[in-house]
Computed example of a mutant assay.
Amino acid sequence: MAADKAIGPIRRSFAPWNDPKARPFIEFRNVTKRFGDFTAVDHLSLGIYEREFFALLGPSGCGKTTLMRMIAGFEEPTEGHVLLDGQDLVGVPPYRRPTNMMFQSYALFPHMSVWDNIAFGLKQDKMPKPEIAARVEEMLALVKLGPFARRKPHQLSGGQKQRVALARSLAKKPKVLLLDEPLGALDKKLREETQFELTDLQMKLGMTFIIVTHDQEEAMTVADRIAVMDHGKIVQVATPAEIYELPNSRYVADFIGDINLIEGRLAPAAGNGARLECAGTGATVETSQPVEAAPGSEAWFAIRPEKVTIGLEPPADPTKNALKGTVWDIGYLGDVSIYHVRLATGATVKATIANRTRLVERPITWEDEVWLSWSRDGGVVLTR
């Protein structure tokens, strides 16, 4: 299902959320959803744009699937409004909404062939038989399953079943495709391949895709923007790069990828940057990032392990943005090795080294005394 042309230039230029004149295609306006005494979605407002691949990311029970089900019409908001292309969806039944949903289980009919599974919704809509045949053949070609048209689901691999479910969801040409953990049943390698196929397909069709997932890498790979959720609220909405490099809170920083969170207090700093004195690690952190908080305020310095340099020799200035410790443990992950360095204070900081050559002998190994260091713009200061 690979695209005929590279989609990178298109994805780089696609950013309607930065255009003050652009109107969201899907809007949640102060939406709350309660199930008895439990609040699944709490006074949430959100805009999703046409042709956007949008990800709802968060742990189980955070409200992401409830949001998607309100778009599909399987749930109605307790308060607030959900709009699609300017139309209020409250009271509109699922079968009258220009949406379709692909479930994690795929929900294929086991007694029907691939062809008939794809055609099922079209037959329910009483589409003329010649049009059904043409549409099914179009979908089979789209997902590269033409030779498997007469097979039953039990004769297919997991990846092929996933493509059948995708083709069936797309057959009715909805304006919005809702994907509820669509790749969860696939093995890791196939899941990674399918992620790129999904983005290629979404760009080719020019449709709005919304995916619910708890897999950070999946959201980072497929989405134009990600909404990170927690307890029914959206904590941050941004592009994958912004979510990873510029998290707005400890929750987002800790949820996305691996991170070192170093607690400290803000100290007076020269210039526009920030300075933290971190008693727990003994570090003095200086950044180029301005922080709107008074000296003495509690703050955290968040830095990714791959942005921490590890070496046997001290850096040029060991008094700031540097720490000394002992290698406590090493994790070999194939492409990288992650070092857990124990400091004199008892705290542990992680650093990553790319394995650029075949691993015969480690230049840095267990119980070595090492220095950790980072640049002024290597991390971000968080105040919440």
Rank of each mutant, 00 (worst) to 15 (best):
V360G: 13
I71Q: 01
T78R: 11
N100P: 14
V349H: 00
K129R: 15
G8Y: 12
T365V: 03
G58A: 06
E286M: 12
A322Y: 08
L382S: 05
F196G: 06
I338V: 15
D180A: 08
T66E: 12
S45R: 10
G232S: 05
E245F: 04
C62L: 12
Q104D: 06
A294D: 12
M70N: 06
L67S: 04
V176C: 13
I310P: 09
P268F: 11
K204V: 02
F25Q: 06
F54Y: 10
Q104P: 11
R163M: 08
D19E: 07
F14Y: 10
P268V: 01
G61L: 11
T309Q: 14
R250P: 02
G232Y: 08
L56D: 04
N100Y: 01
N260P: 11
T365S: 15
Y95E: 14
V341S: 06
I353N: 03
D335F: 13
A219T: 11
N272E: 14
D224T: 03
E181V: 01
Q160W: 12
H154L: 08
P93V: 05
V308F: 12
I256H: 09
D187L: 01
E138Y: 03
G206L: 01
V235Q: 13
K172W: 02
S169A: 15
I330Q: 04
M1Y: 08
V327S: 10
I226H: 12
T65S: 15
F35W: 11
D258E: 15
F196P: 01
E292A: 15
R151P: 06
M112Y: 09
R362C: 03
A2H: 14
T208Y: 06
T287D: 00
G36V: 02
A107H: 08
D4M: 14
K161S: 12
E242K: 11
I26A: 00
Y95P: 00
E76Y: 05
V341F: 09
A165Y: 03
E27T: 08
V228H: 03
A223L: 04
S375W: 06
K21W: 03
D224S: 08
R69H: 11
K320M: 10
N30W: 09
N260A: 08
H43K: 13
A354R: 15
R135P: 00
F109A: 01
T281A: 03
V92M: 15
A223H: 00
A3Y: 07
H340W: 10
R376L: 13
T194L: 03
N248S: 12
M68D: 02
A134Q: 07
A167V: 01
G232C: 05
S288Q: 13
P24T: 02
A351E: 10
I210F: 07
E138R: 03
S169E: 04
Y332I: 11
E76F: 03
E79Y: 11
T65P: 02
L359E: 13
V235R: 14
R384L: 09
R69M: 14
G158D: 04
P318G: 09
Q236C: 11
Y339I: 06
A293E: 08
S169F: 01
L198R: 06
T32R: 08
P174V: 02
L170G: 02
S13H: 08
R150Y: 10
E137V: 00
E361S: 15
S375N: 12
F28I: 07
V291R: 00
F148T: 01
G36E: 10
M101R: 07
L333Y: 15
I234F: 05
G146D: 11
A283C: 10
L56H: 02
I210L: 12
A40K: 09
D85M: 07
R69D: 08
R29P: 00
F25R: 02
R275L: 07
R225I: 07
